[in-house]
């Protein structure tokens, strides 16, 4: 794969090559430590199910961090001006070696005034897990 040409080369309507990330329980523990988010729903099946969740779920911010990584890759580290999403579906992470795969895709929604707006699509097992994920970067 060639190096990312940077945000300035992105044209409206372009569809970017999706990125796939694997997420395991070990990743969640590591993210908890690095982010300071030790909510037990991200590492304890007992607690997660006790509050009505289907199992241990990834931090929404972990999924968003993966989306931000993809944006940085596509834009060669362009300055991010806005980043946002809703967390619409939990990413349930099983207690096994493989975990789950999160896929981040994007299209260029707008290029104007030196800013590039990316409409993202973030899925796990074919289901969208983020609502209206969007990044605005400097061209």
């Amino acid at each position: 794969m060639s190096a990312a040409p940077g945000a300035g080369a992105l044209e409206k309507g372009a569809v970017l090559e999706p990125r796939t990330f694997s997420v395991t329980r070990a990743d969640l523990v590591r993210y908890a430590g690095a982010s300071g988010d030790f909510n037990p729903i991200h590492w304890s099946e007992r607690v997660a199910t006790s509050v009505g969740l289907p199992g241990v779920i990834a931090h929404g911010m972990f999924t968003m961090a993966l989306a931000a990584r993809a944006v940085a890759d596509w834009t060669d580290g362009a300055e991010v001006v806005e980043l946002g999403c809703k967390f619409t579906q939990p990413v349930v992470v099983p207690d096994d070696e493989d975990g789950v795969e999160v896929v981040v895709g994007a299209s260029v929604k707008d290029v104007a005034d030196g800013l590039v707006t990316l409409a993202l699509e973030v899925t796990c097992g074919g289901t969208k897990v983020l609502g209206m994920p969007r990044a605005v970067v400097r061209a």
């Binding site: 037990p40 729903i41 929404g60 991010v80 806005e82 980043l83 946002g84 999403c85 967390f87 609502g131």
Partner: peptide, 14 residues
């Protein structure tokens, strides 16, 4: 209690 909190939406403006 933190364990009763689920993240619904997050936005950053830099």
């Amino acid at each position: 209690e933190l364990r009763r909190i689920v993240h619904g939406e997050q936005r950053f403006t830099y």
